[in-house]
């Protein structure tokens, strides 16, 4: 295999929004071309819908559409499989099954890595696994991984720093969006909502931007039994920003398993204006607009009462 011509396709969905900084610089260091699928559009959604089971969550359907776009355009498609990132924690089972679902639906070559900390399969080992399948030497892989890891950490820090700055300087209403990054930043799921919010003269705080050390045990204020890593992070972020914000939007895709229960916990334990927006593939923008506008009205009224 001639490495110079190898292209890896990365679907712009699900874990892309979490790990892209890591992937991008890792492949960059190894000198491998990367092709991204475009931002989610209607065509991708339609393809995804026709390829997946009706009841799958919207994020997974969109992911299928992205994979479908990349098939036949690239040599490998990067599909991670993550079961467990920390001891005593888990991920949503969709991430367990991601590799096998794609492998059974598409007939394409997959570049796959597997993280399961409980069984000793760490992220480092996983990246060595993908490096090896691209015929790279051990040293090359480790250097690339270390550099990529640093870039990843730096960009995370930078984003957190920027957000703290915004929190301290902003005088507008601050609305916290509590949602998985693959919903918040998706062109079809999160972006219409963020646009509407910005029109209403608000500043948006993202729950998925945080410092890991700082939120470590904060989720216990809402629920101490939750064991999904990503939900834990969201709850921790929520508690972390709680005192500095004016309203909370829980953005969920239909029918998300973990969120269906953690939302219930959030709604009953929080005293700020809170709204749960559920997006499915049929959501229209008109209804959304009404809900967001009235929500902002509530936030304003509450603020007035508080200031008096």
């Amino acid at each position: 295999m001639n490495n110079k011509n190898t292209t890896i396709g990365i679907p712009k969905a699900l874990l892309y929004y979490k790990y892209n900084d890591l992937w991008e610089s890792f492949f960059n260091e190894l000198g491998i071309n990367v092709l991204y699928s475009p931002e989610t559009n209607n065509e991708i959604l339609e393809r995804g819908k026709s390829l997946s089971i009706d009841e799958s969550c919207l994020a997974l359907k969109i992911f299928m559409g992205h994979v479908d776009y990349l098939v036949n355009k690239v040599d490998y498609i990067l599909i991670p499989r993550i079961e467990c990132l920390k001891k005593h924690e888990k991920l949503c089972t969709n991430f367990y099954a991601l590799y096998d679902i794609v492998n059974n639906i598409f007939n394409t070559k997959i570049l796959n890595y597997n993280i399961d900390v409980k069984k000793g399969k760490t992220e480092k080992k996983a990246f060595i696994q993908i490096g090896k399948s691209l015929n790279k030497s051990h040293v090359e892989i480790l250097t690339a991984y270390n550099i990529a890891k640093n870039v990843f950490k730096e960009s995370k820090k930078q984003r957190y720093f920027d957000q703290l700055n915004l929190l301290n300087t902003s005088t507008k209403n601050k609305i916290l969006i509590v949602s998985h990054p693959y919903n918040t930043y998706d062109k079809l799921i999160g972006e219409p909502i963020i646009k509407l919010l910005k029109k209403q003269n608000t500043d948006i705080i993202y729950c998925d931007v945080f410092d890991e050390e700082e939120i470590k045990n904060k989720h216990t204020h809402i629920s101490d039994k939750v064991y999904w890593t990503y939900s834990k992070e969201l709850l921790g972020g929520l508690v972390n920003y709680y005192k500095h914000i004016d309203g909370i939007i829980l953005l969920t895709v239909f029918p998300c398993g973990p969120d269906s229960l953690t939302n219930e916990m959030c709604m009953s334990k929080i005293n700020l204006p809170i709204i749960n927006i559920i997006i499915d593939e049929l959501s229209g923008e008109a209804g959304l607009q009404t809900r967001i506008e009235s929500f902002i009205d509530i936030v304003n009224e509450k603020k007035k009462v508080k200031n008096n």
Binding site: S52, I53, E55, S56, C57, T93, A97, G257
Partner: peptide, 10 residues
């Protein structure tokens, strides 16, 4: 909405 079984269905 059973997530693991939907994965298995595909």
């Amino acid at each position: 909405g059973c997530t693991p079984e939907i994965g298995a269905m595909s």
